[in-house]
Design a protein around this nucleic acid. Structure first.
Length: 906
RNA sequence: GCCCGAAUGGCGAAAUCGGUAGACGCAAGGGACUUAAAAUCCCUCACCCGCAAAGGUAUCCCGGUUCGAGUCCGGGUUCGGGCACCA
């Protein structure tokens, strides 16, 4: 064992050992309990960033812990290799996306190895490999055969200058990111997967995911957005029916407010609006206007609410009143029926719209109190001639208030119906049912379950993705590529230039023969959404290399026992992956219904960002490594200085590491300077996994300091052993109190650490507990003679267990120290130590004494003391007596092992 | 705008089921060792008042429930994630 801790040396040695002995290659073994630990695979953007390091360290800690617990563990790694950044890099550098991507993968693999992650490297995959995506193409064809995918027109962002489809991310303030042209909406035929057909199952199965965070389940449930409502037909008033429609159908979740309808709104893309646009230039202009700019939901919801009257009236199905139809920019064509009944008194958007356009507002819902008043007012009105009661003026003003509210106010809460004919006085549920029944009887409405969730559009008008295996023929229309012709290979030598999909200009790819009739045909040039690639990779890892999509090995490994990744994937990726597994089940590929048994959503990694104001008035962001920080006597930061120029900088606060703020910390620099173990320890110690983690250079040094202290502790013990001969076994009966204290602390810590690793995923507190133990061992060493055989035996036990507890987090130093402690087999193969319950028993416990909930004293009582004895000891405390003097004890509360509380009063 | 989170010393955090707020670490201050520096080791460290003991105040803000609230409930503020073509 070396005198000094040398991370570079021991890390390389440990990594070489794991590689040579293929320690982490997983073998299916039905006799052993499996554990499948998976972290979300990275996009190969170039180098690892701190977020990756954090994510993969968490996964590795769980993997190594479960392995030490004796499970048969699979931890694979791969790359989510298709996507936009590769095309952007190609535009910038003229390098084909494939070349850029494969080179990045190589770099990142080397970094992952340097961090010592226990991956089964033999299962490495990248989604851009034909061996991977051919099964995705095959699966799409199975779904097509089962009618689970279909083609329809759908809107995309179109850059009229660059003649290309833009991702939402590439639209900035309604303009193309490169051209600056105002973006237009275009209708393009695209492929969709029928996820709405699985909406109910995706919603209900959330209840089976008892090891998922509630926040994620709530977000998914809200995203699916199941709502019960009514479809209601409003007959078109005479003349309008000529447009080809007999009635306008709306969807509403508030049929109880139907008597408050004063107009109806439709989406600008609604057929009725488009028909009106044919004859009305104002409507045409409005429709045209909504074709421009952003289409994101956030943009739609925050934009000014605008609309135009269509010049068409519809007939209210219950009152037979005529109400006007408006086109409004806040009504979404792809939600419900693209039309809503507007109730300005009880819907905020309708209210705002009605005020703006001078449309009537009719109050039809009242609170119970209002309803009671209204009834009294009605009685009062009929009696008012004879009754000049003194409370009349007060009543009048209340009635006035109700009337004022009914003309201007807006309440969205449920209540009792008023001004609603025979439905007056009904609650929401009763009114819903009664009105639904009446409309059904009239043939003017039906109950319906609606979802906010929309079908999943999987087509992307982009080159660097998995080709959609379809051939278009003039006679046979869309024909799937025959399975024996898969994969449809993506040519890897093209270079996108920002003006459309280069596949369109590649005849070798596009031109083909129709598989049905043999005539010349065109191949689909759209590729799959990359969420398709990442929706099943976890299953492929479990049947790596199979000549089918997934094989029986997946039955052994699936589902994933723990899935770890960023909270930003809480909805889309996780919902699509859940959906895909249900599809795979229905195609007969698996029996499981959910892919991820347990989910850990990890927080982002932040760093302080600094900038200076340039002469031009802009901000120049300075990398944190070029900044010095000055502090006051208390350690508070007073000034940040640019090291090169001495200029005072402005601290912009903590933010996610990003290129734009130039505040990224390169993990490679940190590994080179401090070693992989220190990086891993720092990442796990600084914050709990779900929380954001703020990078600090000083923190990483602290991690290194702990590892050096640990090294020294073991070194001293080992050297003492060399001097004093062989170890004896522990004789628990003969231990002195210091030795017992060490063993109690050791086994308390072991119990806590196991719970923290397994149940709580609270790695920071596990490390803190190990540090406490380590601090105690330092004091124990200083206060004991190395020569004392029992002390040495206790120390040996403690150090062994400490090294094992830390091994999942800092595997390299643990590998080395374990061997130094005299073990021939590596620490990764040593079984997890057992908690010795006997060692944890203490003779006495410390309690606090409270008077009226305030801390007034501390007492020590025997561990098995009865309540009476505890109270007597508490009352004997001098300070407690001071606060009780002259008071009467009204109540005494004893909480075992915690506290005594006396409630006193004069 | 809508949905989901978060907020505790100078800083990162801990307090696991409503029971001692601040474990563990960082920074800072003081000291030891050293020719010196680094490293290492020891001490102090929420705030106010005090020599100390004791006391008071503190977990984003305003209310509430409880013998007792960082933790539960209602209302707000600020920050972060997502919003369907970034991954």
């Amino acid at each position: 064992m070396d005198q000094d801790y040398n991370p570079q040396k021991i890390e390389r040695a440990a990594q070489d050992f794991w590689t040579q002995s293929q320690s982490f290659a997983a073998q299916e073994d039905a006799a052993r309990e499996k554990f499948y630990c998976l972290s979300m695979f990275p996009y190969p953007s170039g180098k690892l960033h701190m977020g990756h390091v954090r994510n993969y360290t968490i996964g590795d800690v769980v993997t190594r812990y479960q392995r030490m617990r004796g499970k048969n563990v699979l931890q694979p790694i791969g790359f989510d290799a298709f996507g936009l950044p590769a095309e952007n890099a190609a535009i910038k550098n003229g390098v084909p996306p494939a070349q850029w991507t494969y080179s990045n993968i190589e770099t990142m693999c080397a970094q992952l190895k340097q961090l010592g992650f226990a991956y089964d490297w033999s299962r490495k995959l990248a989604t851009c490999e034909p061996e991977y995506y051919r099964w995705q193409q095959w699966f799409f064809i199975q779904l097509l055969k089962k009618g689970l995918v279909y083609r329809k027109n759908s809107r995309v962002n179109w850059d009229p200058v660059d003649q290309t489809v833009l991702a939402n991310e590439q639209v900035i303030d309604g303009r193309g990111w490169r051209s600056g042209a105002v973006v237009e909406q275009r209708e393009v035929p695209q492929w969709f997967m029928k996820i709405t057909g699985y909406a109910d199952e995706l919603l209900h199965d959330l209840d089976t995911l008892d090891q998922w965070p509630d926040a994620v389940k709530t977000m998914q449930a809200n995203w699916i957005g199941r709502s019960q409502g009514l479809e209601i037909d409003f007959k078109l008033a005479d003349g309008a029916a000529a447009a080809g429609y007999q009635h306008l159908t709306v969807f509403t979740t508030r049929p109880d407010t139907i008597y408050g309808v004063t107009f109806v709104s439709v989406a600008a893309q609604h057929p009725l609006a488009l028909a009106a646009a044919q004859r009305d230039s104002a409507v045409a202009a409005f429709v045209e206007e909504t074709r421009r700019g952003d289409v994101t939901e956030a943009a739609m919801e925050t934009m000014e609410k605008r609309g135009v009257p269509l010049g068409v009236d519809v007939i209210h199905p219950l009152t037979a009143e005529r109400v006007p139809v408006w086109a409004a920019n806040f009504v979404l064509m792809n939600y419900g029926t693209g039309a809503v009944m507007a109730v300005p008194a009880h819907d905020e958007r309708d209210h705002e719209f009605a005020i703006k356009h001078g449309l009537p507002i009719r109050k039809v819902i009242a609170t119970e109190a209002e309803f009671a008043l209204e009834k009294r007012a009605a009685t009062l009105g009929s009696l008012s001639d004879e009754d000049d009661s003194t409370e009349q003026p007060a009543q009048q003003s209340l009635i006035g208030a109700i009337e004022a509210a009914s003309s201007n106010g807006c309440t969205t809460e449920r209540g009792l119906c008023i001004n609603s004919a025979e439905f007056d006085g009904l609650t929401f549920d009763a009114a819903f049912d009664a009105i639904a029944t009446k409309l059904e009887a009239l043939g003017a409405g039906r109950r319906r379950i609606n979802y906010r969730l929309r079908d999943w559009g999987v087509s992307r008008q982009r080159y660097w993705g998995c080709p959609i295996p379809i051939i278009y023929c003039e006679t046979c229309d869309a024909v799937p590529v025959p399975e024996d012709q898969l994969p449809v290979r993506l040519p890897e030598n093209l270079v996108p230039d920002g003006r459309g999909n280069p596949l369109l200009r590649t005849p070798e790819f596009v031109e083909c023969k129709c598989p049905q009739c043999g005539k010349p045909a065109r191949r689909e040039t759209d590729t799959f959404d990359t969420f398709v690639d990442s929706s099943w990779y976890f299953a492929r890892f479990a049947s790596f290399g199979a000549n089918v999509m997934i094989d029986a090995r997946a039955d052994y490994w699936m589902p994933v026992d723990i899935y770890i990744g960023g909270i930003e994937h809480a909805i889309l990726h996780l919902l699509y992956a859940r959906f895909f597994v249900k599809l795979m089940r229905d195609v007969g590929l698996t029996e499981i219904a959910e892919p991820f048994k347990r989910l850990l959503t990890q927080g982002m990694v932040l760093a302080e960002a600094y900038y200076r104001i340039t002469e031009a008035g802009g901000r120049e962001w300075i990398a944190p490594k070029d900044v010095d920080v000055e502090r006051d006597a208390k350690g508070a930061i007073t000034r940040a200085v640019h090291r090169a120029s001495g200029e005072t900088l402005i601290a912009a606060g903590m933010g996610t590491m990003s290129k734009s703020k130039n505040n990224g910390i390169d993990p490679q620099d940190i590994i080179d300077a401090h070693g992989a173990d220190a990086v891993r320890l720092y990442m796990m110690f600084t914050a709990p996994p779900e929380q954001t983690l703020e990078w600090s250079d000083a923190g990483i040094e602290g991690a290194g300091r702990f590892l050096r202290r640990l090294w020294k502790l073991v070194l001293d013990h080992v050297e003492a052993g060399n001097q004093h001969g062989s170890l004896s076994t522990i004789d628990t009966a003969s231990l002195n109190s210091a030795q017992k204290d060490v063993r109690r602390k050791l086994h308390d810590t072991l119990a806590k650490v196991g719970d923290d690793y397994e149940r709580r995923f609270s790695f920071n507190t596990a490390i803190a507990a190990c540090m406490e133990l380590s601090n105690l061992l330092h004091r124990f060493r200083d206060g004991s003679e190395h020569a004392h055989p029992q002390s040495r035996a206790v120390m040996q036990e403690a150090l062994q267990v400490l090294v094992q507890m830390l091994a999942p987090i800092v595997p390299h130093i643990a590998h080395e120290l374990w061997s130094a402690l005299g073990h021939a087999t590596p620490v990764i193969d040593a079984p997890w130590p057992q908690v010795d319950a006997g060692a944890r028993i203490a003779d006495s416990v410390a309690l606090v004494v409270q008077i009226n909930g305030k801390l007034r004293g501390k007492i020590e009582v025997p561990a098995d003391a009865l309540d009476d004895q505890v109270i007597a000891t508490a009352l004997a405390d001098v300070n407690v007596q001071k606060f009780i003097a002259g008071q009467t004890i009204r109540k005494q509360i004893v909480v075992k092992g915690k506290l005594v509380n006396f409630v006193v009063a004069a």
